[in-house]
């Protein structure tokens, strides 16, 4: 009989979190929505706040977010997610409320709601997925489509002279006194995933302070409509999207206040 002082134990260090449901996601291979969904589920499970959280799903590819995330959910009309979230938060101020919106939803048809929700400083978390294109409707130009970037409605590239410029709405809303924490992240590389998760966690935690709106932009990809493989799309995003939409915190709370 041998007597050892050291043992090797195999422990699980990563598995799908409970609030990310088993339902298979309808997203295309390599789409960043899946990672963003998972991070939200992980944060909510780790904070143990499923019972106190209500999500608002947008119109767009992530309209079915409620099929994959296991908390109570309200599905909003196109662009109105932050108004719907406002309604919920105002009558249930003790709950955590977040909206999950794409670029067309949040920065085109819903720009008014986005800006006024942030300007009122609603104590909600807005998660903004920016992939520079309308995914669900098949690759039309978005408010965040880059100059010269091709889409089905800018087939020769976005001509800023006639089609206008990409809207950096995150910088715009960071300037509003109602926002408390505004950051831009991505989920295409392990380090970025870790950072994005921290940002989402802060967004939830800060809600308890009642200091204003938290806004987490996640620059993401759209392999199908960018017409690239998932890996290529992540490289393209690194090179082009992140050059225009640089990652990092845009507005951070005053530490003393927090």
């Amino acid at each position: 009989m041998s007597v050892e002082t050291l043992d090797r134990i195999e422990t699980k260090v990563f598995e799908k979190t409970k609030s990310l449901l088993d339902t298979e996601m309808h997203y295309c291979p390599g789409c960043g929505h899946g990672v963003a969904h998972r991070l939200i589920a992980e944060v909510i499970d780790e904070m143990n706040i499923v019972e106190d959280t209500i999500g608002v799903a947008p119109v767009g590819c992530s309209v079915f977010a409620y099929n994959y995330l296991g908390m109570d959910f309200s599905q909003a009309a196109h662009g109105r997610a932050s108004a719907v979230a406002t309604g919920i938060k105002r009558v249930l101020p003790e709950k955590y409320v977040f909206s999950y919106q794409g670029d067309g939803d949040l920065a085109a048809i819903g720009t008014g709601e986005t800006i006024h929700t942030c300007n009122r400083g609603e104590n909600i978390l807005i998660i903004f997925i920016n992939n520079g294109i309308y995914g669900m409707t098949g690759g039309q130009m978005a408010p965040t489509t880059l100059p010269n970037m091709k889409s089905t409605t800018s087939p020769f590239g976005r001509d800023t002279k006639s089609m206008g410029y990409p809207l950096k709405i995150t910088e715009l809303i960071a300037a509003l006194p109602g926002t408390y924490y505004v950051t831009r992240q991505s989920v295409h590389k392990p380090l970025n995933v870790r950072r994005a998760k921290k940002a989402i966690q802060k967004g939830f935690e800060y809600q308890k302070l009642n200091k204003g709106t938290c806004f987490v932009e996640i620059v993401s990809n759209c392999p199908s409509n960018w017409k690239m493989t998932p890996v290529e799309s992540n490289h393209w995003m690194d090179e082009h999207m992140l050059a225009f939409y640089p990652l990092g915190d845009i507005k951070v709370p005053n530490v003393k206040e927090a």
Partner: peptide, 25 residues
């Protein structure tokens, strides 16, 4: 090495990661 990088970036959460850890008996 059980670094979890693959699982972190997996959009469909299909990867579970295990790591052997040495533990003093």
């Amino acid at each position: 090495t059980g670094c979890t990088n693959c699982a972190l970036v997996c959009p469909d959460a299909v990867i579970t990661v295990y790591r052997e850890v040495k533990q003093k008996k």
